[in-house]
Amino acid sequence: MTSMEKRLQKELQAMTKDPPVGVKVNMESLSSNLSEWVVDIDGATGTLYEGEKFQLGFKFTPRYPFDSPQVMFIGRNIPVHPHIYSNGHICLSILTEDWSPALSVQSVCLSIVSMLSSCKEKKLPPDNAIYVRTCSKDPKKTRWWYHDNSV
């Protein structure tokens, strides 16, 4: 087993044994070497996304955890949020330049849940139209411009 597989194995164990509220690993989605995961996310109660269900797709390179995972919303329901583009790409600094091996699948999921929860108004990012037409398929290739830190 490679060191990436070993670490992901331990993360998976911890997340299935003691899952955080509203976050659930979709066990059927796991590839045999654990390099791809789908995580089911529930919109938290008392927020704009209450009752909605989303799916996050994780892709890990063999250099994980030195390299950040590629994380984006997938499936039919993409949350409408100022930092989430309609193609599922997420503008979140810990997914690129602020990544640290101290972070994990669980902490990334919790960051995204809290990003959704703190949203005051459901609207698309201002540059959504142009971004979706011009961006790379891999959100990690985007040079993000972090507009603000309020949500």
Partner: peptide, 9 residues
């Protein structure tokens, strides 16, 4: 280890 999550590497 806080990075690879293993004891023995």
């Amino acid at each position: 280890c806080g990075i690879c999550y293993c004891l023995h590497l």
